[in-house]
Write a protein that binds this DNA or RNA. Structure first.
Length: 109
DNA sequence: AGCGTGACGTGTA
DNA sequence: GTACACGCCACGC
């Protein structure tokens, strides 16, 4: 049975799926919470999220709340999704990101 | 088997 | 405050 290495990504997807609507988190926060390697692995997992359903990767932004992955969504789809969840976005950056920031280490505590 | 790249983060200058 | 370099691990060639 193959326990595919996706297990590593599965952990990341699990946390991303736990992100409540109208909230955003950062790659580093997830990486730190999982204690896996670094933020880059989270980003790479998101790159593979195309193989996973229900992975609101649009709720995951970099540490400054910048929609760095919007290019991978295809245009401003990421911003549209965020605004659809009451998350304001200005110039590819989340407004009040610090307020909307969802920290797994604190919320999931 | 090694090298380059990547949806990041942190530290130093 | 901005710019550059390093570190981290996984994937593609």
């Amino acid at each position: 049975m193959s326990k595919a290495k996706e297990n590593r990504f599965d952990d990341i997807y699990d946390v991303v799926r736990l992100v409540p609507s109208g909230r955003v988190t950062s790659y580093g926060a997830i990486a730190k919470y999982l204690g896996s390697g670094g933020a880059r692995m989270v980003g790479w997992a998101m790159n593979a999220c195309h193989s996973m359903p229900d992975v609101p990767a649009h709720r995951v932004v970099n540490r400054i709340g910048l929609l760095t992955g919007k290019h991978h969504f295809g245009g401003n789809l990421m911003q549209e999704l965020l605004e659809s969840e009451a998350v304001k976005v200005e110039k590819d950056q989340v407004v009040d990101f610090k307020k909307l920031f969802w920290n797994p280490s604190e919320e999931l505590l």
